[in-house]
Amino acid sequence: MDLLFIADPLDTFKVSKDSTLAMMRVAQAAGHRLWFCQSCHVLWRSNAVVADCQPLVIKPSSSTAWYELGAIQDRALNSFSAVLMRTDPPFDIEYLNTTWMLSAAVRQGAKVFNNPAAIRDHSEKLSITEFPELIPPTLVTRELGAIEQFHKEHQDIVIKPLDGMGGMGVFRVGKDGLNLASIVETLGENGARTLMAQRFLPEITQGDKRVLLIGGEVVPFALARIPQGSEIRGNLAAGGKGVAMPLSDAERKVAQYLAPLLNQRGLFLVGLDLIGSYVTEINVTSPTCFVEITEQSGFDVPQFWLTALEKALA
């Protein structure tokens, strides 16, 4: 198969733990041909969605340079066996433009994972509101007064922007309400941006768990991102410690409920975030943690992903 990876520049990859690189390695080892481009290299030309892309070879781990790119070629996206959209957020207007281009490619017969329309329809934070029975008490608003009332009701809350990633812009406001108005005004740019507030979950001390859903199936191990010191954020980008562990019965029940449903919508790969058994985010752009789970648990996540992809393309 010819697999096109649309991703960030290769030189920005964290080689020791990059999930996209893990996908590339396992696909190449299985004999599939790899191609690479950035989202800015996807274009409409001559009545087709094409990519100015390059053949890609992943070198052995011992090599100084871990990849080799061939000459740029102009190929229609529907000429690939699969197109893997792995560009990292932020989900800005250019990301959105890329999904529209990819939707046009889908109409021309391209097979894109995750489906671009499904990515657009599932805000990584707001999509949890479809499942109110699975989420903690949650408020989405631009109004300071509404957040003040929510805080009065729940006493201990977390406030975050809808477009943050890696724990960016997450604040906890305790019972004393210290700096609540200032936090809301700053994060919300005085009412210009929508915020999400949720009841603080003390289970965060056991980790913000990333559960991977692949092809409608559940990876049986999660990566618990555990906050360190006085930090409330478990995100690895915020200094959290990643510990792989088997799913609890409650976590497995939630994941097995959502996995086939989301897969039917075109979300082949999903990173479900759970605190306790509560769903806090549904990540659909470029879910990670393949390498950490594999190394610590022995469960081969990249191979699980490839098997599911080959099945989806059969």
Rank of each mutant, 00 (worst) to 15 (best):
A146T: 05
L126F: 13
T205I: 12
L261I: 15
L21D: 00
L269D: 04
F36G: 03
A312C: 02
P60S: 12
V218H: 10
L212P: 12
Q28M: 11
A71D: 14
I226M: 01
L69Q: 03
A105W: 00
M24H: 03
E68S: 10
F299K: 12
T186I: 10
G174I: 06
Q296V: 09
T64P: 05
R265C: 10
L262G: 04
T64F: 03
A76S: 14
P302L: 08
D88M: 04
V291I: 03
V291H: 02
V184C: 09
D208Q: 00
D52R: 15
S230P: 02
G229M: 04
V243K: 00
K14G: 11
E68K: 07
L102I: 03
P137I: 11
R265W: 07
E130A: 15
K152H: 14
T205C: 10
N179E: 09
L96K: 11
V49P: 01
G191L: 10
L262R: 06
M24S: 03
D11T: 15
E295N: 12
T138R: 10
V106W: 06
F200E: 04
K241M: 09
Q38C: 07
Q206V: 00
I159A: 05
A312N: 05
L69C: 02
E251K: 06
R120W: 07
I232Y: 02
S286Y: 07
D92A: 11
G239H: 04
I282H: 06
Q303I: 02
H122Q: 14
T20R: 00
P136W: 08
R193I: 13
F299Q: 09
H41T: 08
L21F: 01
G169T: 06
S62K: 13
D249T: 11
V291P: 01
Q38I: 04
C40G: 13
V270N: 06
P137Y: 05
L212G: 04
G31D: 12
A71S: 09
L180D: 01
L274H: 04
P220V: 05
D88L: 09
F200A: 03
N283P: 08
M168H: 14
Q54H: 08
A29Y: 10
D11R: 14
F80V: 03
T280P: 08
D273H: 05
A146H: 12
D52L: 15
T12Q: 07
L10S: 02
A197Y: 05
I157D: 03
V218K: 07
V211H: 13
R210E: 06
K152D: 13
L21R: 02
G215Q: 07
F113M: 12
L126Q: 12
N97E: 13
F91W: 13
T307I: 07
R75M: 08
R33I: 12
E68C: 09
G169I: 08
T288S: 10
F5P: 06
T294K: 01
A22T: 03
S127V: 08
V254W: 01
Q296F: 05
E143F: 11
L96W: 12
S16G: 12
G188N: 11
T186K: 13
L178C: 12
I72G: 06
A308L: 11
T87H: 03
K209H: 09
R120M: 15
V284H: 04
I159D: 00
A259Y: 02
P302I: 05
D74E: 11
L4D: 02
T20E: 04
L4C: 01
H154I: 05
G31R: 08
